[in-house]
Design a protein around this nucleic acid. Structure first.
Lengths: 352, 352
DNA sequence: ATGAAAGCGCTAACAG
DNA sequence: CTGTTAGCGCTTTCAT
């Protein structure tokens, strides 16, 4: 069954022009008189023309250069290495379309390193930019450049308000906190208290943590559950540990622990006192955290789905460049709940 | 930067033949002498040739006919309507590659209707078959036909042992049951009992339910938690309801409810007695179940990800036909935990 | 501003 | 069995 495809030639014929102008109209390249443009658009509509992306990409065969501005992974913060799987998967899938990825790493605690990479991005010949917008001022500078050169910019991981970007992909942090609260609530009784812990890198980007906490609190506005809060930097870890130990030992009504960041530091203390006394929840599927899921000390992990963010980000460029679709503004990924029994699905390479 | 692509011509040149035989070797079409075949394969390897799927599909432009053998959705069992979203998404994404879907519905309680559709599938000109293998005998007949005509067959939703199929996509039912047990265990104390409920259609396919239960039991081999079990068909619903009400009222130590099937029938009874007394978990994101998640009567839903199964199934055919990849045997999708707070991500059309 | 025409890399039909 | 060749639908260059 050879479904008669209508192509650029049919349009040309119908509009009584040749294929040259038709192509120009289809790709908004200009250089077509108003009159013929009208005729062509009319023919396109009448014939219900759908472009053949295979033919179009076969002919042009052009490279699409995508730069990825992402913090570098460190032994302490291996989180940023989790994205690679998604980049790899997408590149593999998009291989026929000549995507070209340049990863630009920076130190998330050092604005200068960010600036350096922003400069490199501005200097290179880009078709698209996928970035974690950690530092606002430099991000704005980069964004201005991209706007003037019409390069689409996708944010991932972190959201920044009132900046003009193309699209965002990531987790809704408040909702993840709200979800965490619901989960702990199911495991605890009403007279039990919950400790909220946030441990921060000294100069880091803490937006996520605040939002998670806000979401958590928002759930508990309707309950009478007592929430305690401990917040500190990771500069003096010994003090942090002593503090936490003290808090948990002193108040035996604390039975829930919500860690917005640094769950791998908190869990050894919980284990010391007795993991069977606590229900706990933390973020991110890094090995240090997974360990405590396996020992049973940590009950839940909420994943930000870094690999999926990376994968969907690149696919979004495919949608834009190859399929000429206009993306939605924001893509909030599903918030996955990971426990010991379903861990393998999320840590393995099976799915993203 | 024009990365010099090596094509079929380069191979021909290198092997001192023309493109004709090269194409035949690449596509295993036969009709090539052993000697030239060797030369060509050598050249392919030496040059690291990668086929250009754009060109290949542009030229051949052939239709791929995929039949989908799936139970029909009914008001009572809307589950089978959830797949459509996945089919739609995949078809949209694969539009350039001329896939053609034929949905063959059957009554999952009527082997005859299945047979009818098997006949239709055998009679039509297929390139691939995506099916729920409910009835073993007829499935085998269809499989034999497909093997002899070299049509790849993907099973989804249900797994059938010792049948030769290409690949399976779905949920690992035992593991989902094990997960359910872990979740309830987090919410209950050791002296509380759990009721396992299975409600079956009279002639249905109950493999999933048994496996879920087995997984659940397997978790509790290491605990001292008391498990009770209630199993019945949905033929006499009044009796079922009376039975359940009796069981729950009589034994106030029952605080957990695990429903392998029919959670929408069980939950009204839980609500009647007092939903705050129970932690409960059931399967499938159909509206009737979602309702109880929203009222707070049902704590967890495990989704089989029907839309994702449908989507991945079609994508697998894309991998096979277009990208000429050989699929793995089994794809077990991640087991998602859905609670009230993250429900919207799984019921909406955002992601699959 | 428009038309004509040469391919992109591959397939498939046909001739040798 | 092997070589030749005409396109697939679109982009792009060059001439008009």
């Amino acid at each position: 069954m050879k479904h008669k495809t209508i192509g650029i030639k049919d349009i040309a014929e119908r509009a009584k022009v040749s294929t040259g102008p038709v192509d120009k109209v289809l790709n908004n390249r200009g250089g077509v008189s108003k009159a013929t443009r009208e005729k062509i658009l009319k023919a396109i509509k009448e014939l219900g023309y759908k472009p053949n992306i295979l033919a179009s990409n076969l002919k042009s065969g052009k490279q699409r250069n995508i730069a990825v501005l992402i913090p570098k992974s460190t032994p302490n913060i291996p989180f940023w290495s989790l994205h690679q799987r998604g980049f790899d998967a997408a590149m593999e899938e998009l291989a026929p379309f000549n995507f070209n990825l340049e990863i630009l790493n920076f130190d998330q605690n050092d604005e200068n390193s960010f600036k350096t990479q922003v400069d490199r991005a501005i200097g290179s010949q880009l078709d698209g930019l996928l970035m974690v917008p950690i530092f606002k001022k430099e991000t704005k500078r980069l964004l201005d450049h991209c706007r003037s050169t019409e390069i689409p910019v996708l944010f991932f991981d972190s959201h920044v308000e009132d900046l003009e970007y193309t699209s965002f992909i990531g987790q809704h942090s408040e909702e993840s906190g709200f979800l965490a609260a619901e989960l702990l609530d199911k495991c605890l009784t009403r007279n039990q208290k919950i400790l909220i812990v946030t441990l921060e890198e000294k100069d880091g980007n803490h937006l996520h943590f605040k939002k998670r906490e806000a979401g958590f609190n928002s759930f508990h506005q309707k309950t009478n559950v007592k929430l305690l809060k401990y917040e500190n930097t990771t500069e003096n870890l010994e003090k942090v540990k002593k503090d936490l130990l003290g808090i948990l030992q002193q108040d035996k009504d604390i039975r829930g622990v919500f860690v917005t960041n640094g769950v791998n530091i908190v869990m050894p203390i919980v284990e010391r006192i007795g993991k069977e006394n606590y229900k706990s929840i933390g973020y991110d599927l890094i090995d240090q955290n997974i360990h405590f899921l396996n020992t049973g000390a940590l009950d839940f992990i909420i994943s930000q789905k870094p690999a999926r963010q990376a994968y969907e980000g690149l696919k979004l460029f495919y949608e834009m460049f190859v399929r000429k679709q206009i993306p939605q503004k924001d893509y909030f990924l599903p918030i996955d709940i990971v426990v010991k029994s379903n861990l393998k699905y999320f840590s393995s390479h099976i799915t993203l």
